[in-house]
Design a protein around this nucleic acid. Structure first.
Length: 135
RNA sequence: GAAAUAAGCCAUCUUAUCGCUCUGAAUCCGCAAGGAUCGGAGAGGAAAGUCCGGGCAACACAGAGCAUCGUACUUCCUAACGGGAAGGCGCUGAUUGGGCGACGAAUCAGCGACAGACAGGGCCACAGAAAACAAACCGCCCCGAGCAAUCGGGGUCAGGGUGAAAAGGUAGGGUAAGAGCCUACCGCUCCGGCGGCGACGACGGGGGCACGGUAACCCUUACGAGUUGAAAGACCAAAUAGGCUGGUGAUUCAGGCAACUGAUGAAGGGCGGCUCGUCCGGUGCCAGCGGGUAGGUUGAUGGAGGCGACGGGCGACCGUCGUCCCAGAUAAAUGAUAAGACGUGGCCGUGAACAGAUUUCUCUGCGAAUGGUCACCGACAGAACCCGGCUUACCGGCUUAUUUUUUUU
RNA sequence: GGUCCCGUCGUACAACGGAUAGUAUGUGAGUUUCCGGAACUCAAGAUCGUGGUUCGAUUCCACGCGGGACCA
């Protein structure tokens, strides 16, 4: 798979975001691996559907304004996360999951900036968790 | 050469690989949506704060007045401004002169929310005798009483004391002591014409002087302001539900031999022994229309535009011509990795010139320049419809001007 | 993106432009008690920052800093 990151892979629909963040929703699956809190929805593929090329999931990155007051800092962190995801999203398809994740929210919960190397390592761990844990 | 101030400009750079957004009468693939290749473009001086002003848009609107809010020396610049320019006045500081003195003049630098306090109202704590149509505590002087200490009456703001603020100030005359009581000067105030677009200025004349502060308290005067903001507004428009129209079907009842016509919105089932009650079920299907949600397009990037030349103006700025196209994202595009360069500082070297020691060799100090290495650092900070300002943040670098200072000639 | 409000001891609130910035609670010390609590006495402790207006500023004005609410 090519390491691209197009517009279609960005989660922007207000409705899906609301579903994702709905409190106590059964369809939202939550994974935690510092410094990320991850929420995602897994697509319910109909059993009789023809095996199609797996679509890459749409993702959303969130950095709190509370911890990072300056727009420059928030942008930098989002860019680093996006880059790390782009480089490593292949991990999601290596799992043997029946229902792959379709919409993922990556929430950055640390209070200070983290270097790209460390960030990438943590994100790899989280992505593997998702790929394995999908039910 | 150094420092300070002011103005203007820049605000790390380069290469490689992997990516992001926009874009192309380009090439290829695809019915299309779209994709690939190759080009082109891609954050700021403050993009920030949101403190002002405008454009733009929707709605409102005959005119006038009141209320509310804002602005406040003058003239100008401007689309507009609470911004800017030039000027005036005042205050502060420095320097140089004048005068016995109060004070005043000139030059330079800095600062000023700088309309009005006889239009009216309010307030001025404490202290002090007295704080606003006024006012005598101490003191000084005069008169009266008393042997005296002292007491009573009167004059007086020159002196003391209080305070942020106390009877215009200084010098002289004058007086019982004093006092604009008188004179001169300084200040204040009124009048006159003159200069200036104007704020105001200089000049001449009059008045012995009656005028405390506060309008960033209410207020007065003059001028200005309709309200709401791109989440404004315009357009396209799935799915589902509901609305309207047409077609077609269906429940029950009535009429009719029948086709059909008229009326009705149910029939039925669960809970419950039954009534009542309550719940479920059902009220269709197809096509079209309009409103409109998700979503999308537009608004939205060619502009009070940048650069250059010439011309006008003391200047802010304006005019003409030429030339250029210079971000358009939308849960929001500039990132990651590697290498190198540049800048800053530390350390270790080499070390011109200069100074000192020395007969010399040489040594020491200071160090232009330069090599290596390490370090961290390379600020403040990210467009969100667009402009003009203001304010705040900020590692540094470059250019120009002025002032001060050092060295050499 | 826009609109509005607030900022006073550790905490919650007061204070016409004029006292040593007040009250409650919390904190510390003491009295009382065999000990603790309660009660009583005493003490420490604050005007978000920088300028300006004023004789005088928590209060008025400007700018900044911080916090909060609303518009969908």
């Amino acid at each position: 798979m090519r390491e691209t990151f197009k517009k279609a892979e960005r989660l922007s629909s207000k409705k899906i975001i609301e579903r994702l963040f709905a409190k106590g929703s059964a369809e939202t699956i939550s994974v935690f691996g510092y410094p990320f809190r991850v929420l995602y929805l897994s697509g319910a593929t109909p059993p009789d559907a023809a095996p199609v090329e797996p679509q890459p999931p749409a993702i959303l990155i969130s950095v709190s304004k509370r911890y990072f007051k300056k727009a420059v800092d928030r942008n930098l962190i989002k860019r680093r996360i996006r880059e790390a995801y782009r480089r490593n999203k292949g991990l999601l398809f290596e799992g043997t999951a029946a229902h792959p994740a379709t919409d993922i929210a990556l929430i950055y919960v640390a209070k200070e900036k983290i270097s790209f190397d460390a960030l990438e390592k943590k994100l790899k761990f989280v992505l593997k968790q998702i790929a394995k844990a999908t039910v």
